[in-house]
Computed example of a mutant assay.
Amino acid sequence: MYQASVRSQDEGFMVHYAYGRRGSTLSTGTKTESPVSFTIAKRIYDKLVAEKTAKGYRPGDDAGQMQLVSSKVHTGIHCQLLNPLEEDRLNEVLLDPAYWMQEKLDGRRLLLKKAGDQITGINRLGFPAAVPESIVHSAQRHKGSFLLDGEAVGDQFHAFDLLSVDHEDMRPLRYAVRYFRMRDVLFSFFHPHIHYVDACFKPAKSGVFNEFKRAGKEGVVFKHHDAPYSPGRPNAGGPHLKYKFVETASFVVTKVNDKRSVSLILFEDEKVRPAGNVTIPPNHDIPAPGTVIECRYLYAFKESGSIYQPVYLGPREDIRAAECVTTQLKYKNASPEPV
């Protein structure tokens, strides 16, 4: 058996572990030589849990035994995550008719599953997520089963891909096939709170791209019309890419300051990098240290790593602290205009 825990000590936290056979005296130790911040301790603990579960350990019922970060049961469904489109490839992709373009909405990533009368929401990590009643009622109007990938914006669900319908797995099929099948499915029943996201597949998409940009949209997604739906994120590039008009990133809150401000950090390999502060609006609760939050910003300073003109968007329970890395940031530079 293996036990792991995060415990407070002095001004910080320590990560403790113990292992051995049940009923025997356990060998003990710590993963931290001295007290560290909760954020760093939580990251070390998460990494330890991931390593042990990968080796076959499972959470137990004994008090103090290793527990997984989430108490929810994983659905076994993983969503497709996209890499950003590099600036120097933007015009190439805009002019390539093989890439279809969809608006990137400013919402909460959500997979919507209907199996019989049961409606299940699934977040980007693959865990069950709450679904607004309006979306549930709309989904229940469909006579069969489906699995849609999309974004929840308020009480509306915006579908941009179809993963399965009834007993047919659509994921191995071309994106073009999935897109038109998704439209057919949604045309077949009345669903006032479910919408599909239009795909632009004109040879020249620049006009629509610039309209989105002028309208202050969050960004666009480019999908190769021959690409299957591949769960997870490619190490680099990929046939599906995202391009943001506004910069957003996920950060870890490290402390609460005066005047409703919190300090932010990001990880760079094993190092912790400060990322500045953000003010929390009065209509939001102040996030506690260790919370992952989303912020919009204009750009980041290369020298300090701090973000300029940050705007707090809210907590992100579906993003792990380990994903809050410096590679998310866009630094101040000149960007070429699309053709």
Score class of each variant (00 low, 15 high):
245 F>Q: 06
319 I>P: 02
330 K>N: 07
334 A>S: 12
290 G>C: 13
231 P>H: 08
146 F>K: 10
53 T>D: 03
247 E>K: 12
111 L>F: 10
99 Y>L: 03
333 N>Y: 03
240 H>C: 12
318 D>M: 08
121 G>P: 02
304 S>W: 11
79 C>G: 06
33 E>Q: 14
138 S>P: 10
268 E>F: 09
130 A>S: 12
302 K>T: 08
99 Y>W: 15
95 L>P: 00
310 P>A: 05
40 I>Y: 13
314 G>D: 01
178 R>K: 12
17 Y>L: 09
234 P>N: 14
97 P>H: 04
169 D>Y: 02
6 V>S: 07
92 E>T: 13
96 D>L: 01
319 I>C: 01
154 G>V: 11
27 S>G: 06
226 D>P: 00
267 F>Q: 07
131 V>M: 06
144 G>D: 09
168 E>Q: 13
334 A>Q: 11
111 L>W: 03
263 S>I: 06
221 V>K: 05
317 E>H: 13
117 D>C: 07
222 F>M: 03
226 D>H: 10
229 Y>W: 11
302 K>P: 02
7 R>S: 05
332 K>Q: 13
16 H>F: 15
15 V>K: 02
66 M>P: 02
82 L>R: 01
25 T>H: 12
153 V>H: 01
218 E>Q: 13
76 G>T: 08
241 L>F: 06
109 R>C: 04
253 V>R: 00
275 A>F: 05
214 R>L: 14
158 H>F: 15
287 P>L: 09
181 R>Q: 13
166 D>Y: 06
160 F>T: 04
159 A>P: 04
40 I>F: 15
338 P>E: 14
143 K>E: 13
185 V>G: 02
57 Y>K: 04
35 P>R: 12
165 V>L: 06
215 A>W: 04
237 G>Y: 15
246 V>I: 09
296 R>P: 00
219 G>A: 08
331 Y>A: 05
135 I>M: 08
157 F>G: 02
112 L>H: 01
196 Y>M: 02
129 A>S: 13
149 D>C: 08
6 V>K: 04
60 G>P: 02
145 S>W: 05
3 Q>D: 10
35 P>I: 08
122 I>L: 01
228 P>V: 12
201 F>W: 06
212 F>N: 03
174 R>M: 15
60 G>Y: 05
2 Y>Q: 07
258 D>P: 01
108 R>H: 09
321 A>G: 15
338 P>D: 09
87 E>R: 09
65 Q>H: 11
205 K>Q: 12
